[in-house]
Design a protein around this nucleic acid. Structure first.
Lengths: 157, 157
DNA sequence: TGTGAACGTTCCCATCATGGCAAGGTCAAC
DNA sequence: GTTGACCTTGCCATGATGGGAACGTTCACA
């Protein structure tokens, strides 16, 4: 089985299969006389395993460990679970950070009329680092202006 | 003001300040006779703007646009809002994906006893690509074994 | 038997934002 | 004058993936 067929069958691109081989995530594929890599069912299984782990966001480094546990008949599911939970905590932490950003940005965007005037709480917040105003406490809090150009030499930029 | 002081004052590392200069996100800093970069209040403002935008997860590319709008007295807050909302949608999408992964991984981890035996629904799911079993439908669905080693030529690896 | 398309190979480069390191120049305090 | 903290430029690395060049192989079809 060519690398292209293996790619289609496993859902891992040929490019990535070669990469995984180069970093030792999959063993070096057998070669035909032509130099073409040759894949069998066992290879497809391994590639499928990797793809499913990638779908769950596991890093290649952790997948390497999971593959080691997979092929270890004496593995402990506690080891597997520990890796999964470590990854889960990282996923949750990253999601938390994204949600924090999204929440902050959402209130800024909500506070912006988007009516075509220059006044903009989003810009204002980026300038001052402050959060979005509660609602519209003051009617027209002029958007802070950019700092004056350097010295007198405007053309210097 | 040295780059180090500017870094401390703005919360942007010296390394990044140089980088931002190299990609045109900040104008080339003034230089002293020694060749040292020299920063003033306007530069700190700009760096602070960038840092706050980075804190909200904006890409440097988008920050470049936001900076352009900031310094444009004729800007429309609709333009700013459009960029913010585009970014917001991306944040939400990324968070959604992470949560999807986390949910899937959580049910797998919950389904794993972690009692030290080799049986492991996490490994099983990575092998088959199937979701976590509903709860524990069958008492001991033996974890799928790794594929047999390649043919008879184990040394071929 | 030739030929062309589709595939394979290796190697290098790019992404994105950031950090690290090395070799060398500058500054300020003692 | 020495020392330590700082600055300069330049290159390399990250992690996972894609793109492309230059060149070899396979296979079907005329």
């Amino acid at each position: 089985m060519n690398i292209g067929e293996a790619a289609r069958a496993s859902g891992v691109s040929a490019k990535m299969i070669r990469h995984y081989e180069s970093i030792g995530l999959v063993p070096p594929a057998g070669r035909r006389d032509s130099g073409y890599r040759d894949y069998g069912a066992a290879d497809l299984h391994r590639l499928g395993f990797i793809r499913h782990a990638r779908d769950l966001g596991f890093s290649l480094e952790r997948i390497k460990v999971l593959l080691g546990l997979w092929v270890d008949p004496g593995r402990s599911n506690a080891d597997v679970k520990a890796i999964a939970e470590a990854h889960l905590r990282e996923l949750e932490e990253r999601a938390r950070q994204l949600n924090e950003m999204a929440d902050a940005l959402r209130s800024l965007a909500d506070a912006c009329d988007g009516d075509g005037r220059p006044d903009c709480p989003i810009i204002a917040s980026l300038v001052t680092g402050a959060d979005a105003p509660a609602c519209h406490p003051n009617p027209a809090p002029a958007t802070p202006e950019p700092p004056a150009p350097r010295g007198k030499a405007r053309t210097k930029r």
